[in-house]
Structures are given as C-alpha cells and as structure tokens.
C-alpha cells in the first residue's frame, strides 16, 4: 500500500530548499531521477546541466538512472557543475550494465555535508538466471546531521527495469529486495528506488514482501504527465524513519520550462521522499497520516 498520500503541489514543490544551506535539519531528502541518456550530448547543453544541477542541490541523495556513455568523465564533470555554487556533493557509480552493447550505469550523488557512504558497501545485487536487464546497484548510507551512534543508516538500491519485461523484473525484484534485507543483520532499512516502468496498480508481485509500501501514488512521474513509473519502495515497520512526506518535482512547473525544454532535461521528473535523520530502532510502526505536507 502507499505510504502517505501527500504529493506536493507545484507551488509546494518550488518551496523545496534551493541549496544545502537551507535544507531541513529534521529530515533527509532522498530522490530518484531517470536522466534519459545522460551522456556527453546532454552535458554539452549548458542550460540542461544547470537545471540538472539545481535538481540535485534540492536533495541530500539522488539515485540516478540511465548514465549512458563510454566516457568515465560524465558524472565527475556533472558533480563539478553541481558544486559550482559551493555545494559539496560527491558520487559513487556502478559498472556498465545491460545485455546489449548499449549499456547504462547507476550513480548516487550525495551531499557530503549531510550524508556519508560506506565505501565497502557498494555493489550490484546478484542476478540469478539473468532476470534483470540491469541488476540494481546498492550502497549503504548514513546521515551526518545526527551523532553517528544515533544516525539513520540505510541501503539504497537503484533500479531501471526493462520496459519489455516489467512483470518478470518486478518478480525478480522481490528476491533482490529480500537479499538486501538479509545482507547485514545490523541494517533493517532497504529503500528500492528508481524507474520501474510500472505504477502501483502493477506492484502485485512486490506485495509478497511483508510490510512493503511505496511513497509515490496517485500522481504522474514522467515529464509528459501520463505515467507513474518512478518510486521509492520500502517496508514498515523497518523504515519507520519515513516522515510521510514525498513529492514529484515537476520540471515544467519548478523551472518554468515548456514541455519541449523539459524533455531536453529528461522524460522523467525526479521523485523524492523525506526520512528522519535518526534511527528509530525498536519504535512502533505506523502508517502516516493521509494529509498534505509541505517540505520546509
């Protein structure tokens, strides 16, 4: 079932923090963004890069899908653009994946002032039988706005499904999610996020995971505003750090772009959810109130 029901209006979305200095102290903002064919040709468009950088600066971590380049310089160059305003983002990136010669990479870009990554935690979820076209990349993060012993720690598992094999891939993601839950006995928070090429009505396979839920529901997530393909998926009571706040950052409304210009940025909008920065170990689970929220 969906966690919370509170998508932000465009006006509310514009109130998202513009840079690290004004990010909330009581929440970390985790986003997923499919940046369609993110390679040299997109990086050559200064206005597109500027919009992408502004998107990243609004969040503490962005899980990105569809880095497509034979060059290793695309993401380092992009992170330099993100940090051009004094921000201090860094990144981790996965291997090139895909069955054909056309490969994609996943990357996590995160604000080092508020988030740290366990460098030993990076990896790709095992893919027995080759069910997943692009097996998810995982990494474990910890918030830095609480003392380390109290800080919220969590796995992020980045996924971009094959649109031609969605039911089979969602089935395989059940096993992938449960493998991540079992990977470390001291980590109960697994957040699967990305472009699923499917919306909540098609999530029946995922419901086999006890306590499963998702942040984004009832709104569209693609730039043409016709599909709900992007989401953040996790379980309760384990991830009781979820605040109930989530949203879709509509590129057209947020940046005042006509559709054609927004599509130059991507065919997907970023989606996000907010989490408390401290661990809630042992606390009672509870679904969030179904009321609109605004990120301060």
């Amino acid at each position: 079932m969906a966690y919370g029901l509170a998508g932000l209006s465009p006006a509310q979305a514009q109130q998202l923090p513009a840079g690290p200095a004004v990010k909330p102290w009581d929440a970390v903002l985790v986003a997923s963004f499919n940046i369609q064919v993110f390679g040299e040709s997109k990086m050559a468009k200064q206005q597109v890069v500027e919009v992408l950088a502004r998107v990243v600066r609004k969040f503490d971590i962005v899980a990105i899908q569809e880095v497509r380049s034979k060059s290793d310089e695309v993401i380092p160059s992009f992170v330099r653009a993100v940090n051009a305003d004094g921000s201090q983002y860094h990144y981790v990136i996965g291997p090139r994946e895909g069955r054909t010669v056309s490969k994609e990479q996943y990357t996590f870009i995160y604000d080092t002032r508020r988030i740290e990554v366990d460098a030993s935690s990076l990896g790709v979820v095992p893919n027995p039988g080759g069910a997943l076209h692009r097996p998810p990349m995982h990494a474990r993060f910890r918030t830095r706005i609480q003392p380390a012993e109290m800080a919220f720690t969590f796995w992020l598992v980045d996924i971009h499904t094959d649109p031609d094999e969605v039911p089979q891939e969602l089935q395989a993601l059940v096993g992938a999610f449960q493998q991540m839950q079992a990977l470390r006995p001291d980590e109960d928070d697994v957040i699967l996020l990305g472009d699923l090429n499917a919306g909540p009505p098609e999530f029946s396979a995922l419901k086999r995971i006890p306590g499963i839920g998702w942040a984004v529901s009832g709104v569209t997530t693609n730039t043409r505003r016709s599909k709900t393909y992007d989401n953040l998926i996790f379980t309760q009571p384990q991830t009781s750090e979820y605040t109930g706040q989530w949203g879709v950052l509509d590129l057209q409304n947020t940046f005042g772009l006509p559709l054609e210009k927004a599509l130059e940025v991507s065919d997907h909008n970023p989606v996000w959810a907010a989490f408390y920065p401290a661990e809630h170990r042992g606390q009672a689970a509870g679904f969030m109130a179904a009321q609109p929220t605004t990120v301060k």
């Binding site: 369609q36 064919v37 390679g39 040299e40 040709s41 569809e66 497509r68 380049s69 034979k70 054909t100 056309s102 649109p163 065919d267």
Partner: peptide, 13 residues
C-alpha cells in the same frame, strides 16, 4: 555512439 544511444532510447518507448 550518441546516435546509437539516442536511437535505442527512442525505441524503448
């Protein structure tokens, strides 16, 4: 390369 990647991306959708 970019021509191939954009063509493949177009075909996906």
């Amino acid at each position: 390369d970019p021509t191939r990647e954009w063509a493949a991306a177009a075909l996906e959708e």
